[in-house]
Write a protein that binds this DNA or RNA. Structure first.
Lengths: 208, 208
DNA sequence: GTCTATATAAGGATAGAC
DNA sequence: GTCTATCCTTATATAGAC
């Protein structure tokens, strides 16, 4: 029945599929490490078809990264929403961020690529788009936690404490004192929160 | 007079020059972002000449990174040597690392590229070669600072607190609360040491 | 040691049929 | 929307002269 072309249903499906399948490629190999041929092969199309959906490789990359980041936006915001004391919210955020970094390696790697990007325009676009909201929220939280500190530095330190552990994930296992349970995001979150709360002062009265 | 060929004098000069000039290129654009043509142009040779000194691009890259890392090794070790209380040594190290990261952007970027490398062999080689000695020293220092904590996690946190600030250097200026003096390595070092010493407990008796 | 010239492959991108 | 076919550029690497 119905010889009429049923073209209203699968509309725009391909474009999203391209973004979804190319994002992991860019995450693993970076912009220069992925060719249009690679993307086409992953999606199951020819190169030429990609140019129907995106004007060029740069645009495809930019959209793929933005797509991946948009996917994470809701989750990231949820971590910082809600109520409770500043410390409770900090603990919730640190635990959530750690869990996300442990779970979605591609997202972490895309962040790293963006940080290494030398294209000013591309970097500022993506930075503002992804990092800014996130940073603002943590920045405000930092203000509440300790009004006397530099909130900018403190917010960055909070991110760094969590993210750096996962950035070094692959090389950490060659370092002394490594034990598997340190890869557990909950263990890391506890470590970070404890450090933020009291520093090293918790220990016995070691020299100053 | 000696008609014998006097080949002992200018030996190996070109090879080192290639390494010295290509390392900044790889630092800025990564392995895939630099072609043999680029390197040749930077050194003032033709592509073909590069293959006299290195068997292929991979080897050139590996040697260039190792060369750059070896250059930094002495400076890094000096930071951790010497005597004093653990806290004094920590402060000296944090300040030195911050200054190095602020000064030598190329070195920082090479570290980031290595962390993103998906080639297991290449990564483990470089990681052990550069990071390990460094990490061991900080790890031992962490043990002295607080024997009750996980020294592995603590050492990584110390690195992360310093390095992450510089990794985000280019994007930090788009974030709220940014002021130029935060880029000063001394300011950062003080912030990090203060955080490590007392955490946020320094503030007034905020909740918990 | 470095050059010129070239082989061979891979890359981004477009034209035009269907 | 997707294909085939193709163009042009850039890339790694080698051969052989000097």
């Amino acid at each position: 029945m119905s010889s009429q072309t049923v073209k209203t249903i699968p509309k725009r499906k391909t474009r999203e599929e391209i973004l979804e399948l190319s994002a992991p490629l860019f995450a693993r190999h970076g912009y220069d490490g992925v060719s249009m041929r690679d993307v086409a092969a992953a999606v199951g199309l020819t190169q030429a078809a990609l140019y129907y959906h995106f004007s060029n490789k740069d645009q495809l990359y930019l959209d793929a990264v933005a797509y991946e980041f948009r996917e994470k936006e809701a989750a990231l915001k949820a971590m910082l929403a809600g109520n409770g004391t500043p410390w409770e919210r900090l603990e919730r955020f640190v635990a959530g961020l750690a869990r996300m970094m442990a779970t979605d390696k591609d997202f972490l790697r895309l962040v790293q690529w963006v940080l290494l990007d030398t294209d000013e325009a591309r970097q500022s676009t993506l930075a503002k788009q992804v990092f800014r909201d996130m940073f603002v929220a943590v920045h405000d939280l930092a203000c509440e936690l300790d009004p006397h500190q530099d909130a900018h530095l403190l917010a960055m330190s909070i991110f760094g404490l969590v993210i750096f552990h996962f950035q070094t994930g692959a090389t950490r296992k060659f370092m002394p004192g490594h034990r598997p349970h340190q890869d557990d995001p909950e263990v890391l979150a506890r470590h970070v929160c404890e450090l933020l709360r009291r520093g090293l002062a918790a220990a016995d009265g070691e020299a100053r």
